[in-house]
Structure formats: C-alpha cells, structure tokens
Design a protein around this nucleic acid. Sequence first.
DNA 1: ACAGAATAGATTTTCGAAAGAAAGTGGTTT
DNA 2: AAACCACTTTCTTTCGAAAATCTATTCTGT
Lengths: 253, 253
Amino acid sequence: MSGRRNVAQPMAGETPPRAGDEPATLAETAYRRLHRDIVAGVFAPGQPLRLELLKQRYGFSFSPLREALNRLQAERLVVAAALRGFSVAPFSAEEMWDATETRILVECEALRRSIEHGDDDWEAGIVAAFHALDLQARRVKAIAGEPGDDDLSALEVRHQDFHRALIAKCRSRRLLDLAEQLYAETQRYRLPMLTGRAFADEARDVPLEHRQIMDAALARRADEATALLAAHYRRTSTLIERNMAAQEAAAAD
Amino acid sequence: MSGRRNVAQPMAGETPPRAGDEPATLAETAYRRLHRDIVAGVFAPGQPLRLELLKQRYGFSFSPLREALNRLQAERLVVAAALRGFSVAPFSAEEMWDATETRILVECEALRRSIEHGDDDWEAGIVAAFHALDLQARRVKAIAGEPGDDDLSALEVRHQDFHRALIAKCRSRRLLDLAEQLYAETQRYRLPMLTGRAFADEARDVPLEHRQIMDAALARRADEATALLAAHYRRTSTLIERNMAAQEAAAAD
DNA sequence: ACAGAATAGATTTTCGAAAGAAAGTGGTTT
DNA sequence: AAACCACTTTCTTTCGAAAATCTATTCTGT
C-alpha cells in the first residue's frame, strides 16, 4: 500500500464510479466488499474478523473497516463482543429459520401490497425478470459438468432480481430494505448448498414454482401468490436444514 | 475534558456499570446517549449532527461518535450523505405511516405467536406491566397542571414495557428487535405531541384500549387482539398526522 | 500436581492530527 | 444583475500511533 490518501480509488478489477453510483468514501467501499465476501462465504461462519487481517486483505485502515463492521453488525451479518472485536455471524438452524420466517412475513406483505398497487410497469418488470432468470437457469442446467462460478453468480443475481420485481411496488421503503437484508442473511445459508454437492431435492421443480408465483401475482390472486411464495421459501429452508444436519453428522466422524 | 483515556467512566448523573450491564466501550455509550437524545427530540429533525458539536456535547472523540452514528443510520434515526456527514432523520407523514404500518405488521405477528406459545409467566408479565402502566397513567392524570418530565418519562417507560410484554414470547429475536427499532422511530413522532399542548382526541380512552388488548391476548383470541393492537397504533398515528398538518399550517403564517 | 498470581503478547479501542471535499466569500466579467 | 472563477473557511474522513483490555503462558507457593 502506498502512502496515498483518502477516498476510494477503483482497485484492480472493480468498476470505476459511474454517474449514479456513489461509492465516494472508503468506509462505503469497505462495507460493500465485506458484505459481498461474508455472504459469499469467503469467511467461515463464526470466524473472528481481526482488524489486522482485514487491513491487509482490503488495504483500508482501521476507521473505515470499523464503520463497515458496525453497519454489518446492525444487519446481523457480523456479531460484536464488547472488547473482543467482531466475528462473522455463526450458523444455526434456529437463526436460519428465524430469518426465513421473518422474510416470509415481510415479502408476503410486500407482495400483497404490490399486487394491489402494481401497474403495467410492475407486470412487465416481473415478466422480464422471470424470462432472464429462466434463460440462465436453462443455460446452467444444460452445462454438462460443474457450472462455472460466473454462471452461478449470474443465476443468483437474476434470482434476486425476480424476487425483487415481485415486491417492487409495495410502496414501503422499510419493507424493501428489510427484504434485501433478509435475502442476504438467508443467502449465506443457501450458497454452500449450491456450490457444494449437496443433495438437491429431485422432486422439486424450482422454475415451475417461480412461474406459478408469477402467474398468481399477475392474475392478482394475492392469497394464492403469497401462499406459493411462502411455500417456496420454506421448501428451500427445509432442504438447507437437512443438509446442515447431514454435514454435522459427517463432521462427527 | 482532562487527558484521561479510554473506556466509559460513569459521568455525572449516570449509573455506574453494574454486573449484568455492559456499557464497556465509549462507542457503545455514545450510541445509547445519542439514541436517547434523538428519540427525545433534543436535536431537531433534519438537523445536521456536526462532529465538533457532538464532541463538545458528549466529550467523546471522533471514532466512537462515528461508530454510534453508523449504527443509528442503520436504524433510520439518522441519515448520512456521502461526504456531507450525518443529520437527524427528517420528519414526514409518509415516513411516519411507513414506520407505523411496518410496526403493525411486525408486532401483530409477534403477538399472534406469543398468544400461541405464551405460558403463565407471559400472562403474569402482561398483567404486571398493565397494572404498573395503569397506576402511572392515573397518577399523571391526577396531577392538576403540567405533569413533570419525570412523570411523563416514567409513563413512557411503562407504556413500552406493556407492549414489550405482549410480544415477549414470540420466539423470534428478529421480530423483537424490529419492534424495538420501530418503537423508537414512531416514538420520535409521538413525544412532541405529548409534551406540547397538541389537541388530544377527547373521544379516546387509551387505558381502555390497553385493557381490551390485554384481555383479548390473555383469552387467546388472536384475531381480536391483533385487530385491537393495529387499531390502537393507527389511531395514534392519525392523531399525530393531524397535529403535523396543524403545525405546518401554523408555521405558514 | 494444582490453584493463583504475575508477566508477556496479541488485539481492540481511542485519540489527535492531517488530508481531502464541500460550502461560503468576494471579486471580476459579461 | 447574473454567471463564473479563485480563494478561504468549515467540515468530514482517514490515518497511524498510543492506551486500554483481553488471552495465553510462565512462575510461585501450597
């Protein structure tokens, strides 16, 4: 690290700040990168996040790192102990279910309101997002062996975009932000299942589930749409829970 | 401020750290005091929170203040602009209603689950909290002229305790924390109405509303209890909205 | 051998100063 | 008078070092 000072310089491999973007401060950049890396599982759950380590890894000084960690703490991605620093939020089935059920509460309400207020743009956004998701899902499925990291992360982005599109017109900043936050929390549990060779539920047709949610939403059948959405999330969490139990059993050898 | 260093020293008028408490760091103390003062309306909505000012007012240095402000930002009590620092979250009827409706969503679900899981301790907690609230409410009402600040803040504490008791057994850390956070947000709007001589709704019997919520909860009538709770919050918000409009009209003279 | 104290090392937390950006000021030009 | 530029001031943000605290280890006495 040179003696250069202040304010985010685009580091190698990052997009430079376009108009409309606003990284601006190092603390903001540190927050985004830590957020991304924690969700992606770069740091193991429960792992202490030593400041010296983060300083080396990211090149930021204490202050911006500390601010980032404080914000992440408020989002439950990291936990902090009084004079013992920060660590990655640990995994547990209880936490996963709490995050899942809270997410269901929030997103079902947001979906209900979107179904009530949604206009043509809303419908078009859902159809577009579903189509993009479906394309990428077929692409990944068509790949013979292991799908590449790029293919999987593109799939994830489109998956998130689809669920975002469903609730886009709920007219509540808080519900939208909560949905984003709870998505990040649950995503941490979901990713290891996708990359690792966990046993997927063969009886499950995820694209079909998505299509049914979309159809119910576009037809303005709120009760059906929210029921399908909740079932969709619960199925995933049940699968994750099984995988967690299997992994613990394997680790106990 | 002398040259003394580090770690919360109990300042004049504060309780020293008892066992079980854990202020521990200056950042934590700064967070609590800023939180309290913002909710109490010590700083006007929208007011910029200059670090130099806060440093003088609280005696902390930049670092702990900054950490506190970052956490408060995540809770929507302060807003931050890229290189322009922090300010108190501004007031608006839209924000108040969003906070209110989100709070209703969260607390009604938490109440429903508490009604399902609640044991004898839960019932006893509600009855005790209601009684304490009722006592203080009568006390305040019996005072001839202006009730003192102590009486009002004691009333507020007991009011919060009552609502906390209702949802105590929901078995979700996230719902409990969200309820706390949304309570703080809505409280900012409510307090000016209590202290100022805003026109109260004469037709309203708040203690009765509380009693009805309690009775429905204890009788495990979930639908009725949640409906009463939601109506309770909406009535308050409607009143606040009227007062906000009245104040704006008065300011436009 | 074992509890307890003392010490050394690692890590977090805090401070004060310095760098950088934004807002404000005043003067000049069109 | 309005727009523009250079300069000054104010404020935020960042840095690196110093202080405080925690953790692990060694030493001491029973």
